[in-house]
């Protein structure tokens, strides 16, 4: 028994401060991303979510340059970008993709410059990796209380707006018919997405934060038909994935090639993707079995079967 525990959790796992911080931060971020992710998928705004976090690279690298936590950089750029998206989003659809793509690539180009300055100032390439791909083990303990606070704000607003948000995500027309201010609500949700993207960028970086937003949500949609339940399930899947990722990354300090540990973000995303595949396969099998049952014995009574047998 003790042997199994030791094999899974490498020695020192439960006594390490970075591990403890990573477990807490990872769980918070996963809960928020899961809940926000379900609404994001429902609204068909996955790309907006990705753009929000990718553009966070600019804020994150700028924050590094002036010596504050990237969290604040991610947050600032997220809020600015959310406002810009709302303004652009109301324009005609034509040209919107082009404008978005152009802004996204320009901002990433600018980020490349800032990251270059960051590496010169710190004489290390670690910054680039941390911003783009995150590092749960590198989160400083001071950032955690701020992350907890922001998550609570995000979850509280989500709970408050739950019903109008759900209805307007299903159909803007139905929501407007009930007197819901659809446009203001859309902006409010963009801001929630920006907040959630900032939090998950600290954990898994600006590029992979989409995985934490969309992956667990997509899995949850397969597993439940209830909206609130889907948000909870997505959060739980996110927590399991980040924790499993942390355990595996800690174990990987004993692995090839360098014995320096594989990136924890890789493990997190790998677990998220695996869980999605399993859930997808499971629901497909279940659907196939249900179809078999329906076309099984009762089919014999149908005229088609009679024709075939005669």
């Amino acid at each position: 028994m003790g042997g199994v525990v030791n094999a899974v959790f490498a020695p020192g796992f439960f006594h390490s401060d970075p591990v403890r911080t990573a477990l807490i931060a990872g769980a918070i971020v996963a809960l928020v991303s899961g809940a926000v992710g379900v609404i994001t998928v429902l609204r068909g705004q996955s790309f907006a979510g990705h753009a929000l976090s990718a553009l966070g690279t600019l804020g994150g690298s700028a924050a590094f340059l002036v010596g504050v936590s990237p969290l604040w950089g991610f947050l600032t750029s997220g809020v600015v970008v959310a406002g810009a998206m709302e303004a652009v989003g109301t324009q005609r659809r034509r040209g919107r993709d082009v404008a978005t793509g152009l802004v996204l690539s320009t901002a990433l180009g600018l980020s490349a410059l800032l990251l270059y300055f960051d590496t010169i100032a710190n004489s290390t390439t670690g910054v680039t990796i941390t911003i783009l791909f995150g590092s749960l083990f590198a989160i400083s303990g001071i950032t955690v209380p701020a992350m907890i606070l922001l998550s609570l704000v995000c979850l509280a607003v989500l709970a408050l707006l739950y019903r109008p948000l759900l209805l307007s995500s299903v159909s803007a027309e139905l929501a407007a018919a009930r007197g819901i201010p659809v446009r203001a609500l859309g902006l409010a949700f963009l801001l929630l997405m920006a907040l959630s993207a900032a939090l998950s960028s600290v954990a898994v970086g600006t590029i992979l934060s989409t995985a934490l937003l969309i992956g667990p949500a997509a899995t949850a949609l397969r597993l439940t038909r209830r909206p609130a339940m889907a948000m909870a399930v997505a959060g739980a899947i996110g927590v399991i994935s980040t924790w499993a990722g942390i355990v595996l990354a800690y174990d990987s300090y004993h692995w090839a090639p360098a014995g320096k540990g594989w990136p924890v973000s890789f493990f997190v995303v790998a677990v998220i993707f695996t869980l999605y595949l399993v859930a997808d396969l499971g629901t497909r099998l279940q659907a196939a079995r249900a179809r078999d049952r329906r076309t099984g014995s009762p089919a014999a009574a149908q005229p088609l079967a009679t024709v075939r047998s005669s």
């Binding site: 429902l42 709970a159 019903r163 139905l174 009930r178 819901i180 949609l221 909206p227």
Partner: peptide, 23 residues
């Protein structure tokens, strides 16, 4: 969306108080 986690009864319930704020 066919994948949307929303049962028929959820949509009907939203007709009752879908505009209300709060859980």
């Amino acid at each position: 969306d066919p994948d949307a986690p929303l049962r028929a009864r959820d949509l009907v319930a939203l007709g009752l108080d879908g505009e209300r704020v709060g859980p």
